[in-house]
Write a protein that binds this DNA or RNA. Structure first.
Lengths: 190, 190
DNA sequence: ATGAGGTCTTAAGATACCTTAATTGTTTTC
DNA sequence: GAAAACAATTAAGGTATCTTAAGACCTCAT
């Protein structure tokens, strides 16, 4: 188990060697080729994934077949269909790799086990959820108050690494605009 | 201290009598008249508030003076400018009462003290943050994939109680549309 | 009670963003 | 390494939503 994920955890809580070892037995590694579907809407969402390398996205397909990108996950990000993972509901979103990726996965039952065995993980996940919540709330705020062009510039400034790893079509679907309209916007300063 | 807030906590964790008593010493009660500004953008956000009765909203005012409602909080909801509360940044949003309200507040330092003294609260806040996160993510999804009319109907169905307590103008600013446009939409079945 | 200010509605004209379509360049696949 | 598929761009016409304005209705303070 490469230690990028342990470093990610160590940002917020300190694990003893034994705890880190236990954690390692509860996570599994996967290497996935580009364009691999990791989760399909309707399926049970069994895994929380940490991205060691590569890039993934989760997206929703509405009744008209239109795709909306819910989130991107590049190195050092966590991704899942959180609502469905936590509440054992059928997934609403799809998750796929954008490029070849190496990820670590924690199943729902190992997640529960982890929280019971090492209560410090409650703190870790609280902080993870806190950050995810405030990020989504800021996104809602920008969706409500900014024009498409402003949202695009804000995205490029906030996530320059993601911009390098995904297509403009995918960014457009994250911003809630069409690729054609994105094309007409003034390019942001980088 | 009325026990609505203890019941809210008991939904997710079990507190002993002593723990409940300690918690009570760390929260303070306030009764606020209608239209009271509880937090102003730019100020430090010192409090996390639980709504016992009444209704509040948080909103953002953009560079053109346009208001966007970030969230409503009616009985049994928690509200604050979470990003700024947790990270000691100046508030981005305003919070005001919509009607006379009774709330319980926890200061940032008491919050920290609570998490250290009663680690079960890590679990409680994890679950609170989890729910807030998945709710915001669903809101982003709806903003990206639904028309204004569909979002309005979804809001009415999800939050009938809020609909009774706030104006249509405020709902419009939550949905990201103008009150004039909301007025032209087909009324939802209730 | 009266007036002042806010909310809600309707309507006409304006605009941000969408749809469709065609062209070119790039990537993937056999 | 050719063919097929996809991404990016440009442009013309269309639509959802906004802006402004005006009138009717509330609500609340004097």
């Amino acid at each position: 188990m490469p230690d990028s994920i342990l470093k990610n955890i160590a940002k917020h809580i300190h694990l003893s060697e034994e705890e880190a070892a236990l954690f390692s037995t509860l996570a599994s590694v996967k290497t996935l080729p580009k364009k691999t579907l990791l989760l399909q809407a309707g399926q049970e969402c069994r895994h929380l994934s940490y991205v060691h390398s590569g890039a993934l996205r989760s997206f929703y397909i509405d009744k008209d077949g239109k795709e909306s990108t819910i989130m991107f996950a590049v190195a050092d990000w966590w991704i899942t269909d959180m609502y469905c993972y936590l509440n054992r509901k059928p997934a609403m979103t799809h998750i796929e790799t954008i490029e070849e990726s190496m990820i670590f996965q924690i199943s729902r039952s190992n997640f529960d086990h982890l929280l019971e065995t090492i209560p410090k993980f409650e703190r870790f996940f609280r902080i993870l959820m806190q950050n995810a919540y405030t990020r989504e709330q800021l996104r809602v705020m920008e969706n409500l108050s900014l024009t498409a062009e402003e949202r695009y510039h804000s995205f490029v400034q906030k996530y320059p690494q993601i911009v390098r790893q995904v297509t403009k079509k995918q960014i457009a679907s994250y911003l809630g605009i069409t690729p054609e309209f994105l094309s007409t916007l003034k390019k942001p300063e980088i």
